[in-house]
Design a protein around this nucleic acid. Structure first.
Lengths: 105, 105
DNA sequence: TAATGTAGGCACTTTAAAGTACCTATATCC
DNA sequence: GGATATAGGTACTTTAAAGTGCCTACATTA
């Protein structure tokens, strides 16, 4: 793909409603699908899977499947994914200075 | 508004297809509407105006209207808008390391 | 034995984002 | 007098994003 301005490449990878949120959670450590689901109560199973697939396809997220029942899948950031860290950190930091957060239970 | 994770507040302000691109241009200096339009050949007039209105509403962009004909309007980042700079810089930098850019003419 | 939990797949519908087309005002230029 | 340039507005349509509902497998638990 070609862009008019380089930052569009960044948006291609982490644009959209969920990707940044997912990656912000993965920055704190690898997570199972169900853990991510709990951390993001309003995402649907379909959206979660779909976004993870795209992140995996773009090489920023790793999918580790354990051959057991019930199924177990662990997601983590790839080394390439870690290169996005300055962006994610800056976004998280900015957000923290501008809102109230829903209480956890 | 309330969020599950602070970074959602950031996405509220700069999320979407165009806002980051617009702000990356404004970081380099204030711009007239027509200048922004030239810098973003694929944005429509409607989208440009609409996104600028939202950015203005969120306090990150300033709209300066000159009372003359033909009309002249200049957009610039507000001080609050400048607080997003670390994010925009990081996003621009990441993009620059991951694509080819369409040649300008 | 029947319910539970996990990580999805798939078809379909809804909603939100984005795009198209056409309209305004008026000073200045040709 | 008619074209041009500027910064929009508005109604409508298209397209993409997101959501809903229902389905699978099977070991473990109650």
């Amino acid at each position: 793909m070609a862009y008019n301005i380089p930052v569009e490449a960044t948006l291609d990878v982490i644009g959209g409603k969920w990707k940044v949120v997912i990656m912000c959670h993965l920055i704190k450590g690898e997570k199972r699908t169900s853990e991510l689901k709990k951390l993001m109560p309003t995402i649907t199973q379909k959206m979660l899977t779909q976004q993870l697939r795209e992140l995996e396809h773009d090489g920023v997220v790793n999918r580790m499947v354990f051959d057991q029942v019930p199924p177990k899948v662990i997601y983590s950031l790839t080394e390439y994914g870690w290169s996005l860290r300055p962006i994610l950190d800056a976004m998280c930091a900015w957000g923290e200075h501008h809102i109230e957060v829903i209480e956890e239970n």
